[in-house]
Amino acid sequence: MNTAQGSVALDVASLPRSAFGQRSVMWWATMCMIAIEGTAFALAITSYLYLKGRTPTWPPAMLPPALLWGTINLVVLLVSAWPNQLAKNAAERFDLRGVRIWMAVALAFALAFNMIRFLEFGALNVRWDVNAYGSVTWFLLGLHTVHVLTDFLDSSVLAAVMFFGRVDEQRFVDVSENALYWYFVVISWLPIYAVIYLAPRVA
């Protein structure tokens, strides 16, 4: 391999300097993150069902969580997929103006979601330290909250970069992968919502 001169070489100079989707490194890193967090969610849900299976009445002599705020939040989260997708599309066309607008809208949704989340905790009708049902309910909701909160914070930083920072092609890839992760936060809420709000209502 040292005797390169005069012979054939593979010229990669004309290759692009970024790529989206599974071609990019950040997509795979995001996928690993999703796999890690998805496994944690799955195990937390499994633990919930395990404890439920061992308890004669569920919830044990108390009201199930009130449906109102959780269901409103379900709607907020599902609708947030729309600005999220528009931000992703804008990033993939390297449209900085579109990225700024739709990231800001998506952030507004995330902020609203986090605020309603506080009300959700108040409407669970159980404290975490009363019994195992309370513990695992708070744990599931808490685990999901950690994800929406941290994703809100790092999306805010990324949005700030897109408004005020040095923007190159790779930042647009970051926006696209960030939108992918938000989808994970949205989709993972569906089974967790079902477990927290509906499982205590079925025998």
Partner: peptide
């Protein structure tokens, strides 16, 4: 650590944990 620090009951047999 939640059982130990915040008095949750995941592994506490007496309160439905296991």
């Amino acid at each position: 650590i939640l059982d130990r620090l915040l008095a949750t009951n995941f592994f506490n047999q007496a309160e439905g944990g296991d």
